[in-house]
Deep mutational scan, measured.
Amino acid sequence: ELREAFRLYDKEGNGYISTDVMREILAELDETLSSEDLDAMIDEIDADGSGTVDFEEFMGVMT
C-alpha cells in the first residue's frame, strides 16, 4: 500500500520524489504545520541531503 502511494508521487518512475513534493504531502497531511516545521521535517527525512526522498525514506515517514 505504501509503495502504491509512493508511485503516485513518483510520476516519472525514477525511484524518488523531490523534497518539494514531500513537503506538499506533509502539508496536506497536517495543515497546521508551519513552514519552519516543514523545513525541519524535510531535513530529517532527507538525511543524506540529496534533495530527494527515496522509498525507504518515504516509508520511514509514513510508518
Results as ranks from 00 to 15, higher is better:
residue 53 V to K: 01
residue 7 R to G: 15
residue 30 D to G: 05
residue 4 E to S: 04
residue 60 G to F: 14
residue 38 L to S: 01
residue 22 M to T: 01
residue 30 D to F: 14
residue 59 M to H: 07
residue 4 E to M: 05
residue 2 L to N: 02
residue 5 A to I: 15
residue 4 E to D: 14
residue 28 E to S: 15
residue 9 Y to G: 04
residue 10 D to L: 04
residue 46 D to H: 03
residue 60 G to C: 12
residue 54 D to W: 08
residue 40 A to P: 01
residue 49 G to N: 12
residue 58 F to N: 01
residue 32 T to R: 10
residue 3 R to C: 15
residue 37 D to Y: 06
residue 63 T to V: 11
residue 26 L to R: 00
residue 60 G to S: 13
residue 63 T to W: 06
residue 54 D to C: 05
residue 61 V to I: 13
residue 30 D to T: 06
residue 18 S to L: 07
residue 32 T to I: 04
residue 27 A to E: 05
residue 35 S to I: 11
residue 23 R to E: 01
residue 42 I to H: 01
residue 39 D to M: 07
residue 7 R to W: 11
residue 3 R to P: 03
residue 29 L to E: 03
residue 3 R to S: 09
residue 16 Y to P: 01
residue 8 L to M: 14
residue 11 K to Q: 10
residue 62 M to Q: 04
residue 17 I to W: 02
residue 4 E to V: 06
residue 19 T to P: 05
residue 59 M to N: 06
residue 9 Y to H: 10
residue 32 T to F: 09
residue 38 L to F: 03
residue 44 E to P: 03
residue 45 I to E: 01
residue 18 S to D: 05
residue 20 D to G: 10
residue 10 D to K: 00
residue 57 E to S: 13
residue 24 E to T: 13
residue 44 E to G: 11
residue 63 T to A: 11
residue 11 K to L: 12
residue 19 T to N: 12
residue 59 M to V: 15
residue 52 T to K: 09
residue 62 M to L: 07
residue 62 M to K: 04
residue 35 S to H: 10
residue 22 M to C: 04
residue 6 F to Y: 03
residue 53 V to A: 01
residue 59 M to Y: 12
residue 15 G to E: 03
residue 43 D to K: 14
residue 52 T to F: 07
residue 52 T to P: 01
residue 43 D to C: 13
residue 41 M to V: 06
residue 44 E to H: 13
residue 55 F to A: 03
residue 35 S to L: 10
residue 63 T to E: 10
residue 15 G to V: 02
residue 49 G to S: 10
residue 35 S to V: 11
residue 33 L to R: 06
residue 36 E to L: 09
residue 5 A to K: 15
residue 7 R to C: 15
residue 44 E to Q: 13
residue 9 Y to K: 03
residue 10 D to A: 02
residue 10 D to R: 00
residue 23 R to S: 01
residue 5 A to H: 13
residue 54 D to I: 06
residue 57 E to R: 14
residue 31 E to R: 14
residue 37 D to H: 08
residue 53 V to T: 01
residue 34 S to M: 07
residue 19 T to K: 09
residue 2 L to H: 06
residue 1 E to Y: 14
residue 57 E to T: 14
residue 14 N to F: 10
residue 61 V to F: 15
residue 47 A to H: 12
residue 1 E to N: 14
residue 10 D to E: 02
residue 11 K to F: 10
residue 52 T to M: 08
residue 53 V to C: 04
residue 9 Y to D: 03
residue 41 M to T: 03
residue 21 V to Y: 08
residue 31 E to W: 12
residue 33 L to D: 01
residue 31 E to L: 11
residue 26 L to I: 07
residue 22 M to W: 04
residue 11 K to P: 14
residue 39 D to R: 07
residue 56 E to P: 06
residue 37 D to G: 06
residue 44 E to I: 12
residue 36 E to S: 11
residue 24 E to R: 15
residue 28 E to F: 09
residue 41 M to Y: 09
residue 44 E to N: 12
residue 38 L to R: 03
residue 61 V to C: 12
residue 49 G to D: 07
residue 7 R to E: 15
residue 40 A to F: 10
residue 42 I to N: 01
residue 50 S to L: 07
residue 31 E to N: 13
residue 55 F to R: 02
residue 55 F to E: 06
residue 45 I to R: 01
residue 49 G to P: 02
residue 15 G to M: 02
residue 9 Y to N: 04
residue 2 L to P: 03
residue 17 I to C: 01
residue 28 E to P: 01
residue 5 A to Y: 15
residue 3 R to N: 09
residue 39 D to A: 08
residue 42 I to G: 01
residue 54 D to K: 07
residue 45 I to W: 06
residue 24 E to L: 14
residue 19 T to S: 06
residue 22 M to K: 00
residue 46 D to V: 04
residue 42 I to F: 04
residue 44 E to M: 12
residue 23 R to A: 02
residue 51 G to P: 01
residue 22 M to I: 07
residue 8 L to K: 15
residue 36 E to R: 09
residue 54 D to A: 09
residue 45 I to Y: 05
residue 58 F to C: 03
residue 42 I to M: 10
residue 13 G to H: 05
residue 19 T to C: 05
residue 33 L to A: 05
residue 14 N to W: 06
residue 18 S to Y: 07
residue 15 G to C: 03
residue 25 I to E: 00
residue 9 Y to M: 09
residue 56 E to Y: 11
residue 38 L to T: 01
residue 28 E to V: 09
residue 3 R to L: 15
residue 62 M to G: 04
residue 22 M to A: 04
residue 58 F to Y: 09
residue 50 S to Q: 05
residue 1 E to H: 14
residue 29 L to V: 07
residue 13 G to F: 04
residue 1 E to I: 12
residue 54 D to F: 07
residue 40 A to V: 09
residue 38 L to C: 02
residue 49 G to A: 08
residue 57 E to G: 14
residue 18 S to Q: 05
residue 43 D to Y: 12
residue 28 E to K: 15
residue 46 D to Q: 03
residue 55 F to L: 10
residue 59 M to S: 11
residue 26 L to Y: 02
residue 17 I to H: 00
residue 58 F to K: 00
residue 38 L to N: 00
residue 17 I to K: 00
residue 26 L to Q: 00
residue 30 D to V: 08
residue 32 T to N: 10
residue 47 A to W: 12
residue 21 V to R: 11
residue 20 D to Q: 14
residue 5 A to R: 15
residue 32 T to H: 11
residue 57 E to M: 13
residue 23 R to W: 03
residue 26 L to P: 00
residue 38 L to V: 08
residue 2 L to D: 04
residue 29 L to G: 05
residue 21 V to H: 11
residue 57 E to F: 06
residue 21 V to E: 08
residue 36 E to T: 10
residue 19 T to R: 09
residue 34 S to K: 08
residue 31 E to K: 14
residue 46 D to M: 03
residue 48 D to G: 06
residue 13 G to Q: 07
residue 46 D to E: 03
residue 35 S to T: 10
residue 47 A to K: 13
residue 47 A to F: 09
residue 33 L to H: 04
residue 41 M to R: 08
residue 27 A to Y: 11
residue 7 R to N: 15
